[in-house]
Design a protein around this nucleic acid. Structure first.
Length: 500
RNA sequence: GCGGACAUAGUGUAGUGGUUAGCACGCAAGCUUCCCAAGCUUGCAACCCGGGUUCAAAUCCCGGUGUCCGCACCA
């Protein structure tokens, strides 16, 4: 679906809107409304059920969103997030001072501070690549983190976390002790991260405050679980770095077992690609034809990642493939850095007596992005109705209860509503407008079922159950209703039989 | 952040200096209606913010904010 159509539906139905809109809004922030926050919560719950469910040794935690400066210094974010920008006085073009110096062969320019950078720019007679003049403004730090002074006397520096992952690394020693000293240990966080993006755009795709769902798996590279294996035939649409070097532009269906056999990735990594792919396909309902795995090459990926595949979906609203999440093999980079930074040994002693620094496999998931992508891909025009074919457990409401003629069936509908609410179902009552109009309203925000109360309901307590996508109806009793709703609420699990 | 375009009810839009600011959809109330945005009646609801020019500004000018498209950025 196109971006304008999506956004106007979202605004009209109160799914989401710009933050502080009556004051003109603020770039990069959006508020979720009733339907939006419900879908987002459901998405987070589905993610958690799947990824925390991968192993009994995986747990969710909820760490603080603010970090002291020492943490972001150790993680490398302080250096890497503060780009020194200079502007050409003649033509106004902006550059990163360190990039200009590096282009002239200056080593470790990233480590230089403002005045030194300026000195070197002058010494080396660096010229503007566009207009050729050699006059720049003094470097101005553009920090992509939100930092602020902390404490009663503003005596400390603190930062809003730029990614949730750091919180999990900090939690590792506590979790190791509290959770019985076993590897693999999984630490999941679903929470906000904050980045001072230069140009936030594309609604939910570049926000300044956004929700990440991330699982950090700490494991022993010499002692991998037996279950971390891929079946021989499981294939994914993949565009590998190797294929791209050879000129490939499009993903091809590739067997993960082949990629392992060719030495392109270890099997434990392939296993996690498979489980992540199954979540997108089988839990979230992404059409396979729109998904691909995109491998970042050495230049593109973050320096600490040894292997990085992004999960991408082709979105009409944003004109191409967009990243929804990723699988990063970060090695022991993070625990090494935080061991050094905190002067704490984050290594652990295993049952067999070996003392190791665990490696980290990071599974990331952008919650807001996925909400947008699922709207783009699953919301469709069907004649003059709009249908959002969300999986039932992601829909904001499971069913709408509609008295066919409110005056005659209203009371009965209210009774049914109370009963289903008491049974724990998220159902909504709508008695306003013609029956077709009410069906259409439900379809538009993805409600999978409509239950209609009619003349027969009054005499024999049966109702018609309408299915959203097919519009097909069947007549059911209350008991059958509850069974159908319960069944639709069930999630697939990572341990169900793997289909290719 | 740079360049360009744009900003009118909840949504989509008409309106080139003087309009009761129009239309469609929507929403609400009523009538009707035993099943897919039907019909009839009535109603609700808008000129992004701040300055300026002018007798008069939704309309022209300046600034701000926001959105979109390119460029840059996206550890």
């Amino acid at each position: 679906m196109e971006s304008e159509a999506l956004m106007s539906t979202f605004l009209r139905r109160g799914v989401l809107w710009p933050t502080a809109e009556i004051y003109g809004g603020i770039q990069g922030l959006y508020d979720y409304g009733e339907a939006g926050s419900s879908i987002k919560r459901n998405l987070e719950a589905a993610w958690e059920r799947w990824f925390v469910g991968l192993s009994p040794g995986y747990y969710r935690i909820e760490p603080a969103e603010i970090l002291p400066e020492a943490v972001v210094r150790a993680s490398g974010h302080l250096a890497n997030f503060a780009d020194p920008l200079v502007k050409c006085n003649a033509c106004g073009e902006e550059y990163r001072a360190d990039t200009l110096l590096e282009a002239r062969g200056v080593q470790d320019a990233e480590a230089l501070r403002g005045e030194e950078l300026q000195k070197r720019l002058v010494e080396l007679k660096i010229r503007c690549p566009r207009c050729g003049k050699a006059e720049f403004t003094p470097p101005k730090a553009f920090n992509l983190m939100f930092g602020f002074d902390w404490g009663a006397q503003s005596e400390e520096r603190a930062y809003l976390r730029p990614e949730t992952a750091q919180s999990s690394y900090l939690a590792f020693p506590r979790m190791w002790n509290a959770m019985r000293k076993k590897l693999p240990l999984g630490v999941a966080v679903v929470g906000k991260a904050y980045r001072n993006e230069i140009a936030p755009r594309q609604v939910l795709f570049r926000m300044r405050a956004f929700t990440q769902a991330e699982l950090q798996i700490f494991f022993d590279p010499e002692g991998l679980p037996d279950s971390w294996r891929v079946p021989p035939d499981f294939s994914v649409p993949a565009l590998t770095a190797r294929d791209r070097e050879k000129g490939a532009k499009e993903a091809t269906l590739q067997k993960l077992s082949d990629l392992v056999a060719q030495g392109q990735m270890p099997e434990f990594y392939a296993y996690h690609l498979m489980q992540t792919y199954r979540c997108y396909r089988d839990v979230l309902g992404y059409p396979e034809a729109r998904l691909r795995l995109f491998e970042k090459n050495e230049k593109e990926r973050a320096f600490y990642n040894r292997i990085q595949y992004d999960f991408e979906a082709h979105l009409d609203s944003l004109g191409g493939f967009k990243e929804l999440g990723a699988v990063h093999y970060r090695g022991d980079y993070d625990l090494t850095k935080h061991s050094e930074g905190s002067k704490t040994d984050l290594g652990v002693t295993l049952e067999n007596g070996r003392h190791i620094l665990p490696h980290v496999l990071e599974l990331t998931f952008g919650v807001d992005r996925n909400l947008w992508a699922l709207a783009d891909l699953l919301m469709k025009k069907d004649g003059d109705r709009t249908v959002w074919s969300l999986p039932p457990y992601l829909a904001p409401k499971l069913a709408g209860i509609l008295p066919l003629i409110p005056k005659e069936h209203g009371e009965d509908a209210l009774r049914l509503h109370r009963r289903l609410v008491a049974e724990g179902f998220h159902v909504v009552l709508d008695d306003s407008g013609s029956i077709g109009r009410r069906y259409a309203r439900l379809d538009e925000i993805g409600t999978p079922f409509a239950i209609t109360v009619d003349r027969d309901s009054l005499t024999n307590q049966t109702y018609t159950l309408r299915e959203r996508d097919s519009k097909a109806q069947r007549r059911v009793t209350v008991e059958e209703l509850a069974v159908a709703l319960r069944k639709a609420s069930l999630f697939p699990t990572p341990h169900s039989e793997v289909r290719n």
